[in-house]
Design a protein around this nucleic acid. Structure first.
Length: 685
DNA sequence: TTGCCTCGAGATCA
DNA sequence: CTCGAGGCAA
């Protein structure tokens, strides 16, 4: 690590010299120093190739600091002096991502990867090219640059919005505060913040000296560092940033490979391990190489990312609800550890499903201590034939959730008996039931079983539903035990005087809780609907229902048939919805919530026109007039629908450059109208 | 599922 | 100052 010490005396000399010798204005001097420091910083942290001594660097930095102090009006938010931090953030405001941050689909075997490649090759017919990159194990981030200046650093969050951690991001030396070369007006760079192993060990050595507990693993330490309030502390953590994607308008590249080069030229650290591959063999060679080679890397990776290279091919493939179809992660084989199964306990979820949980002798695995692992259901227990006292093999795959994969029969105690799944609810002793065709056992005591009641309320307050600040599972349990809350709507009857007597709740906490409850009334209808916890109504289904039934009364009156007519709503969901609303207590509760002022009516933008009513569209090839996102919006705003493949339901195929198999198939069908982009635009004019 | 950071509450000590 | 809840990230 570079140390930035220097003496004030020398600094003053340098200052005097700068003024005396060159007759520069402070403004000019600041500009020169800034540029020099930026350059040296880049050489040191991005290229790993310093061209001046640490001492000289520190002198220049001190000089710049002094000048900025003297002329604060000339100090830039992206000055190299900001690298050392100092800004303290109280809380990190939420920022919407301009471009959604998708996740990646994971694969764990050669077979799965081959399946993906074959799927890709089916939709895109010619000259496939892939970029293989290392999958860094850290925290994802999005950086916004305005006219080449770092403007925002945002965590991934839920992919739609994240936390503004700009001041902390500025302290990471391998992130340029100002881009090199020509920069577009606005662009977003995505990458991963990691803590190299050496830095991790160094931090732990320091912590040990200070008598502090060492950190468990680099990934959590990196992630935690980004959320520290004192950016000067963040500056002391030797974090690094590896960037792998750029988004924005009119960018000067047309493929992932060119994008990596652009990133590198713009001054980001882009490892040169990425490789352009044309064949399956090349991809698998790359994987194999790094599966072994990763042990020698100075940082941790947990897999390989494979991306279709040209953008027009990526666009052809498009996205699922969560991830691009044009990329996939290959995760290295998970680490395993052997440990003892001490006990099986049973948990009752909000739906009444009873889940067996293995309580394990704590064991160190992939940088964490594993003590518990879900056994999912009775079938899994039977299949593994795990018994109390068994020695089992635990694995921590890409899902993060530890899993029992095997039982070591040689070490089984002689008297170990088969596990009998419990017959009665561990919480309320009601006899459990098992629905036909389902592997889970349920406690049918919906209204009297504490974990089900608490679970429903926890679900309601959760982030994706009402997102009530400063209330968590423990607080709900407290409310329930105090007899204050038995159903969702009871939350809205809570008063300050009810809560203050409760343990651990001071005035401040109570105020936060009540404010959170009040603020929840502003949440849109689809969140409220999701929060009700109707079985099979997740976030996506809730949104779909709200679209089709824009207020709660329409939804409550809908028959199963009407529900099923909605796209993606099947019999199972329709049945669950009507059953929910058939219950008197549910209808009463909803009436109460409505009275309290929760949103039970959807707000949508009106469609611009209905000219595309009944029409279906599919876009293929490289589009030049608009993006796929824009196309989708245009179609929907004009009453049309987007479909995903060429079938007899497709009425219009809009073709861009390089249209391939879809165009061919449409021609074969003969029923599809083929349009150019211009013709499409003319349709909706 | 676990680890890390932050905050409020309550204990401890001056 | 220490503890535990809560939030977040993978």
């Amino acid at each position: 690590m570079k140390t930035h010490h220097g003496s004030n005396k020398i600094k003053r000399n340098l200052l005097t010299c700068a003024f005396n010798c060159s007759f520069m204005t402070p403004e000019e001097r600041i500009k020169i120093l800034t540029q020099e420091l930026q350059e040296h910083n880049y050489n040191y942290y991005v290229l790993d190739n310093p061209t001046i001594s640490d001492y000289e660097f520190d002198m220049k930095l001190k000089e710049l600091q002094a000048l900025e102090e003297k002329y604060p009006q000339l100090a830039d938010a992206n000055s190299p002096t900001r690298r050392v931090g100092g800004d303290v953030t109280k809380n990190f405001p939420t920022i919407q991502h301009t471009y959604r941050m998708y996740s990646l689909v994971n694969s764990y075997s050669r077979e799965e990867l081959v399946e993906w490649i074959e799927r890709v090759e089916k939709s895109v017919d010619e000259n496939l090219e892939y970029v293989c990159e290392l999958k860094f194990d850290g925290a994802s981030i999005s950086l916004k640059y305005i006219n080449g200046q770092l403007a925002e650093g945002v965590t991934r969050g839920d992919g739609y919005q994240g936390d503004d951690i700009t001041t902390n991001v500025r302290t990471i030396r391998s992130i340029p505060l100002k881009l090199r070369g020509d920069a577009p007006e606005e662009m977003y760079v995505r990458g991963e913040i990691i803590l190299p192993l050496e830095g991790f060990q160094q931090i732990n050595a320091e912590r040990e000296e200070l008598g502090l507990e060492p950190f468990m693993n680099p990934r959590n330490t990196a992630s935690g560092s980004l959320k520290m309030q004192d950016s000067a502390e963040v500056a002391k953590r030797p974090l690094q940033a590896f960037m792998y994607a750029v988004q924005g308008k009119d960018l000067p590249f047309e493929s992932q490979w060119e994008m990596l080069a652009f990133c590198r030229n713009a001054g980001f650290k882009v490892p040169d391990s990425a490789k352009l591959c044309k064949t399956q063999k090349e991809i698998f060679d790359f994987i194999e190489h790094w599966d072994k080679g990763r042990l020698n890397l100075p940082y941790e990776i947990d897999g390989i990312v494979i991306k279709v290279n040209p953008f027009y091919q990526q666009n052809e493939l498009g996205y699922t609800a969560k991830a691009p179809r044009w990329a996939i992660a290959y995760k290295f084989k998970a680490e395993q550890a052997q440990t003892k199964l001490n006990e099986i306990t049973y948990q009752v979820g909000r739906t009444g499903a009873v889940t067996p949980v293995a309580n394990l002798e704590p064991v160190l695995l992939a940088g964490t201590t594993v003590k518990r692992a879900s056994l999912h259901n009775a079938d899994i227990i039977a299949q593994l034939d795990v018994r109390i006292g068994d020695t089992v093999m635990v694995e921590k795959g890409g899902e993060i959730i530890p899993k029992i994969v095997d039982v070591n029969l040689d070490l089984r105690p002689k008297d170990a008996e088969k596990v009998e799944f419990i017959k009665h609810c561990p919480e309320c002793n009601t006899a459990l039931v098992r629905h036909e065709g389902e592997s889970a056992y349920y406690c049918p005591n919906e209204d009297g079983c504490p974990p089900q009641i608490k679970g429903r309320i926890e679900h309601f307050i959760s982030r994706k539903a009402m997102d009530m600040d400063s209330i968590g599972a423990e607080t709900i349990a407290q409310f329930y035990e105090a007899g204050l809350v038995n159903k969702i709507s009871d939350l809205y009857d809570l008063r300050q005087e009810d809560l203050l007597p409760l343990e651990r709740l001071g005035e401040k906490s109570v105020q936060n809780i009540l404010e959170g409850i009040e603020a929840s009334k502003q949440n849109p209808f689809h969140k409220v609907l999701y929060g009700l916890g109707i079985r099979y109504v997740g976030e996506t289904v809730a949104k779909k229902l709200v679209r089709a039934f824009p207020n709660i009364h329409l939804l409550m009156q809908a028959t199963e048939e009407e529900l099923e007519s909605v796209d993606a709503i099947g019999g199972r969901i329709a049945n669950s919805v009507t059953e929910y609303f058939a219950k008197e207590e549910h209808r009463e509760m909803i009436a109460k919530l409505e009275k309290e002022g929760l949103q039970f009516e959807a707000e949508f933008e009106e469609n611009i026109s209905e000219v595309l009513n009944g029409e279906t569209f599919l876009f293929t090839g490289k589009l030049s007039e608009f993006t796929r996102e824009e196309a989708k919006e245009m179609v929907e705003k004009n009453g049309g629908k987007i479909v995903s493949s060429v079938t007899k339901n497709l009425k219009n195929l809009v073709v861009g450059e390089n249209a391939g198999s879809k165009l061919k198939k449409a021609n074969e069908l003969g029923t599809v109208k083929i349009l150019t982009e211009k013709e499409f635009l003319a349709l909706i004019k």
